[in-house]
Amino acid sequence: MAKSPVQFRLNGSDRATFVDPGDNLLVTLRRGLNEFGPKYGCGQGACGVCTVLIDGEPHLSCLTLAVACEGRHVETVSGMADGPNLHPLQNAFMDNFAAQCGFCTPGMLMAARALLERNPNPTREEVIEGIAGNICRCTGYEPIITAILAAAGNRGQRQA
């Protein structure tokens, strides 16, 4: 099968690879670019573990056609920290025990980041709505909601 080239910005760096025609972005990131931040859960859009930002907006990478990402900016959880400094959301997730097995965490963090970029001071209901597309089987969601609200309160203050 003929492969096609695709090139996009991934967490600030230009990356290129070859894809099969129907390949989704998740497969392309994980197999083609060794970017293992987004996870493969359902491949159906139902679990949210593959959530990435494309041009700043949340998308499910398992339902995104890879070749359609040509020239766009894709951000994953791997690009959240600034060198050794974790993003305030990552710190808040640690402080509030918002990860148990951690499988949902890369998607939760991206959904939370998308929410806070659009709405820096969300209410509890808005946080619940913001992560409505992401399933967590471990935490019961409460620590995740608490962490996102805590990060919203501490925005701009990166911990060393």
Binding site: P21, G22, N24, G43, Q44, G45, L60, C62, L63, T64, L65, V67, A68
Partner: peptide, 21 residues
Amino acid sequence: GGTLVMRDINEGRFLDGTLLR
């Protein structure tokens, strides 16, 4: 938007044909 058609591709229900962007 691809939310249904990509599901068909991922699950092997649409493997033969043309996907039009």
